[in-house]
Write a protein that binds this DNA or RNA. Structure first.
Lengths: 229, 229
DNA sequence: TAGTGGTCTAGACCACGGC
DNA sequence: CCGTGGTCTAGACCACTAG
């Protein structure tokens, strides 16, 4: 039977973990490995490319393939969508827009989004609830150029988060987590004491043409961000 | 000239973002696309496979390839290695083991690592410094079965973090970030006021055979966890 | 400059799974 | 059933770069 590229990958990983190939080692080149294992070079290439992407190997033309000293392990985080987070826990999702006003983008947000001049925007503050309990409170600025129509949507069916995901699904951006003390005005919404430590997420989103939105999310006390390796 | 698979991928992504292929749409099959673009099916396959892995497309045999309704975007986080974090910022790395004792693994840590019975272990508490300033303080339990020799290393050259990375490089585990108030005994090490909000990382590491270690890291105030999409 | 990985090609077979 | 994506193959050319 023919060897699949996953078989080749597994065999290579076995040799790494069994220290038959030790960190820093040059491993055989693709052609030799293909010979030894009895498959085409393309199959070996795909297997080793996969291990390199996963951080186990370091490959360079002419220099060959080496086992990494310290495998560069990466954790993946599904980009958080509050409604999905809540529903995934089997809880009832709800939200409430507490505050909404149109105004030019303030200086701090302009800087975050790399914008200058007078930018038409809208500020929306929203409380998200899980089974009726406060889950997170977000303070969001939306650029109307990047999200046309946002200011005319009543936001009674879709939350700002869902609206923007649906509309500006194809975007790039940054996520920035930190710990902060809950400000007094947010504490009331989150039903906790002012000054309690909470996780804060600062996020910027850029569409293909325009910046779309920047938001600060205050999670309720006890929120955890879990990553699996 | 020949079309590379990245060109094909870019063209497909352009069509998605330009809504020429809209969410839910069935896109042409590989053979047709290869014809249209003037390349081999293998090239189209690699391009579309890449977009599927990135969450833009949903591919199934016989059912064909569809544009995802809501692209499943993922953020990647390089698993933090404190020394590398500090050095990447151009700062001087240093550490200091403040406390070290051998003892059976306590109940809380046994639960975290799915262990029971009496487990030989060692507790190490370490302060990490960037340019002489407190960067993080970790409280770690190491299972000696999973990290043989750890208790005999003086930890004068390699920090516990580095030692375990080097020794138990090939591992799985979980990362769990939360916000917490700095406990009084940690505040002294981090040179901040007790009760200040800080990012806390709880991590468990499992080797191929045995659980290796569980650790709680208190980051200094102001620490940010940045992810790029 | 020569060795190595990166990639394209054309053809083939197969597994999956709508129909 | 039979269309679709998943993969293997053998060969080829090329880009990069260490020596």
């Amino acid at each position: 039977m023919a060897l699949g590229w996953q078989d080749v990958r597994d065999e290579a990983l076995r040799r790494i973990q069994a220290r038959e190939w030790t960190p820093g080692d040059l491993i055989p080149n693709e052609a030799d490995l293909a010979d030894e294992l009895g498959c085409a070079r393309g199959t070996v290439n795909r297997a080793l490319r996969d291990l390199a992407e996963a951080g186990w190997l370091d490959r360079r033309r002419k220099a060959g393939t080496r086992v990494r000293q310290a495998p560069e392990r990466r954790a993946q985080l599904a980009i958080p969508l509050i409604r999905q987070d809540i529903e995934a826990r089997g809880q009832q999702f709800a939200f409430s827009v507490t505050d909404r006003q149109s105004a030019p983008l303030p200086a701090r947000e302009r800087a975050l989004l790399n914008l200058s001049g007078e930018i038409p925007a809208q500020r929306v503050r929203t409380l998200y609830l899980a089974d009726g309990q406060p889950y997170a409170f977000e303070d969001r600025w939306v650029c109307l150029a990047g999200a046309p129509g946002f200011d005319r949507d009543p936001l009674d069916r879709l939350s700002p988060n869902d609206w923007l995901v649906q509309f500006a699904a194809f975007s790039r951006g940054t996520l920035d987590y930190s710990a902060a003390a809950v400000p007094a005005d947010v504490a009331g919404h989150l039903d906790c004491a002012a000054g309690e430590p909470v996780m804060v997420l600062d996020r910027c989103t850029f569409g293909p043409q325009h910046p779309v939105t920047t938001v600060r999310v205050y999670h309720a006390p006890g929120h955890r961000l879990r990553l699996e390796i």
